[in-house]
């Protein structure tokens, strides 16, 4: 019996620590907890009363739903910028990340739970643009404006489900990359593509854009495999492609996060003279370009994404603008980084 009581007490302790030790603005969450706990018994809508109380003080709760931040400096950059801007405005920031880049169902349930906890606005980077639609519909039911960043809506998505999509034009940026690589190869050669996670719109757009950039030249894509945004998977994919096609001239990586794996595969195969182009412009990518191991990367501006998203949402929440005042797609821009401007790009790299 003593052991059971000890277990129970430790359970209470753990949960107690959890409730009081949240990383978000503690005072605010504790006061809202007390308020809504009282109102629960009256069966009024706690979300509404919270929102009423908050419009008076002008402080909102903004959530950001994204995939895992582990080994994802790009996503972490966006998240940090959003957190900074939200807290600067005196609002509360809630972060939800999934366990892995493939957990589409978890992202949906996290958004549902965030809605229950009373967020006023949502920024989301969807893992799968189709699977996110039910979550967006719930947000619309609760009158929570949504802005998508980095990965956009699937084709045919109802436009009333989101305010705008702020992101890099992955397609256009990759077309540039394809054209530049074709130029450097003199219009002839064989290349391979290391893709992202299947179904992710950003990844698909980059692969398709690169292929479009090669059109009209004699550069041929002999293989493409998913690297799933991870070095481990990219290593395997690159190894396999090198074994099947030992004499390729170039490789396009759909993201800098896969470069370490790709380089390792190239080194252990002893292959050289392979042009490597990439996308994202992260710190590691820019450094590799500076060192000459990678020839070019297309740098994105994730901080711009986060900043604009928060700015627009606050404008809507404060009533200054409505959802219709925004274009459905806002291009956050991309820069072509080569060894010449790599130093400068490194300064701005996530």
């Amino acid at each position: 019996m003593k052991k059971v009581i000890a277990m129970l007490l430790s359970l209470v302790m753990v949960l107690g620590m959890a409730a009081c030790g949240g990383t978000n603005t503690q005072e605010e969450s504790q006061t809202t907890a007390e308020d809504t706990a009282e109102e629960e018994t009256e069966e009024t809508e706690p979300a509404e009363s919270e929102a009423e109380a908050e419009t008076e003080t002008g402080s909102y709760k903004i959530g950001f739903s994204v995939k895992t931040l582990t080994n994802e400096p790009f996503q972490a950059f966006i998240a940090d910028m959003i957190q900074t801007k939200v807290e600067e405005a005196g609002c509360e920031f809630v972060l939800a990340t999934t366990d892995s880049a493939e957990d589409v169902a978890q992202q949906v349930s996290q958004i549902e739970d965030m809605l229950v906890s009373g967020i006023d606005a949502l920024i989301v980077n969807p893992l799968d643009s189709n699977a996110i639609i039910p979550a967006l519909e719930r947000c619309k039911e609760e009158n929570v404006p949504v802005i998508m960043v980095d990965s956009g809506p699937a084709e045919g998505t109802d436009e009333s489900l989101y305010v705008t999509y702020i992101g890099t034009d992955n397609y256009a940026g990759s077309v540039t990359a394809g054209e530049k690589m074709a130029e450097e190869l003199g219009g002839e050669g064989k290349v391979v593509i290391v893709r992202g996670v299947s179904g992710n719109t950003a990844g698909e757009a980059r692969a398709n854009g690169f292929k479009a950039g090669l059109e009209g030249t004699n550069v041929e894509v002999v293989a493409e495999q998913p690297g799933n945004w991870s070095n481990d998977d990219a290593l395997q994919a690159m190894e396999n492609m090198l074994i099947a096609n030992p004499d390729i001239d170039g490789v396009y990586s759909c993201s800098d996060v896969m470069l370490d794996g790709i380089l390792e595969a190239i080194d252990s195969a002893g292959a050289d003279d392979i042009l490597i182009y990439s996308f994202d412009g992260l710190t590691n990518g820019c450094q590799l370009v500076l060192d000459g191991r990678v020839q070019a990367t297309m740098q994105q501006y994730p901080s711009v994404m986060g900043e604009l998203a928060v700015e627009y949402l606050l404008q809507i929440l404060n009533g200054e603008k409505t959802a219709d005042d925004f274009e459905k797609f806002v291009d956050s821009g991309v820069a072509y980084v080569t060894q010449e401007n790599a130093e400068e790009a490194l300064q701005n790299a996530p």
């Binding site: 957990d103 169902a105 949906v108 799968d128 189709n130 699977a131 639609i133 039910p134 299947s198 179904g199």
Partner: peptide, 17 residues
């Protein structure tokens, strides 16, 4: 049921379950 909830079939949707 899961695909009905997500309105899509994602190949790795079952992994965490």
């Amino acid at each position: 049921l899961l695909s009905s909830q997500l309105s899509t079939v994602h190949p790795t949707q079952g992994n965490s379950y």
